[in-house]
């Protein structure tokens, strides 16, 4: 039995404005799918505030829509809904790849993209592809009369394990993903012995626009090798716009190996994680570059 701590009230508003007002009053624990919060509260990792705020009934937080050149994915979108969306599968395929390797169907049906982002695990499965896609996080708050929103690049939003730039009175409302340009290819790799249902030892995503034997607008991102998912800028620089042959790929893989600073834990040692970063960068980059 978890310690319910200070939990006194429960609310499940249907309107965003109402939820934001409740948040403004302070000390709320937000729940959507519950897949992270429930085990965290059982293990004592998370303690409840005085209000349990269930945002799952707020229609404004759902839906996947193309708004101009941006795909807006509502924070409540379940991982299963990502997988089922033709827009995600066709235009943001690296995100669909990661969604397919996310836990199990039962968890995918409950877990939301907003929860995965706000939980800010270094190994969060959707974070690496979202970084490769230059995603941004949309936050809303009620200040005075109206609703104010702000948008932050995902990379900036994530500040550490379980830590983000979300202010206590803010609610994450959506992920905004610019539509990748024509010719964009990207792949996701998650290390583990299972197809899914695994916390990644490392994950990586590589994307770029293919022009002949070159990749442009290159993104190389890693999960579980730093306090937050990161971009490997040195590796990116070695790839950007260059003709990719075996030697160039090897150089980029070595650079990635050298720039990550993973930790050792019960899942893997730092040394092994770095080895994986090199070896799988080599393999995935070859896939992205040569198909």
């Amino acid at each position: 039995m978890p310690d319910a701590g200070a939990l006194e009230r429960y609310a499940a508003p249907r309107a965003l404005a109402e939820a934001l007002e409740l948040l403004r009053d302070g000390d709320a624990t937000i729940v959507a799918g519950g897949t992270d919060l429930m085990p965290q509260s059982h293990s004592g990792k998370a303690r409840f505030g005085s209000l349990l705020l269930n945002i799952r009934r707020i229609a404004e937080l759902g839906g996947i829509a193309l708004e101009g050149d941006t795909v807006r994915i509502g924070a409540l979108t379940s991982i299963s809904a990502l997988l089922a969306s033709p827009l995600v599968r066709e235009r943001l395929s690296i995100l669909a790849q990661a969604a397919d390797q996310f836990a199990s169907e039962q968890v995918r049906n409950a877990a939301t993209i907003g929860g995965n982002v706000c939980n800010a695990s270094p190994a969060g499965d959707t974070l690496v592809p979202l970084i490769v896609l230059d995603a941004a996080v949309e936050l809303a708050a009620k200040a005075g009369g109206g609703i104010e929103t702000r948008t932050l690049p995902l990379q900036d939003f994530l500040t550490g394990p379980g830590r983000t730039q979300r202010r206590p009175h803010e609610l994450m409302t959506a992920v905004r993903v610019p539509l990748p340009p024509a010719g964009f290819v990207a792949r996701f790799y998650k290390h583990g012995t299972r197809p899914a249902l695994d916390i990644s030892t490392i994950s990586l995503g590589i994307g770029g626009v293919r022009r002949g034997d070159r990749l442009e607008r290159v993104r190389v991102a890693f999960g579980a090798v730093a306090p937050t998912p990161i971009r490997a800028r040195a590796a990116e620089a070695l790839i950007e716009g260059r003709a990719l042959d075996a030697a160039a790929i090897e150089a980029a893989a070595e650079a990635a190996h050298d720039e990550v600073r993973p930790i050792s834990d019960v899942r893997a040692s730092d040394w092994y994680r770095q080895e994986l970063v090199r070896n799988m960068t080599r393999r995935v980059l070859a896939h992205v570059a040569f198909g």
Binding site: Y10, A12, G34, M38, N54, E105, N109
Partner: peptide, 13 residues
Amino acid sequence: GASLNACLLFAVD
């Protein structure tokens, strides 16, 4: 209609 783990779902939900 969707399968979920009852242990992760809040009863209130």
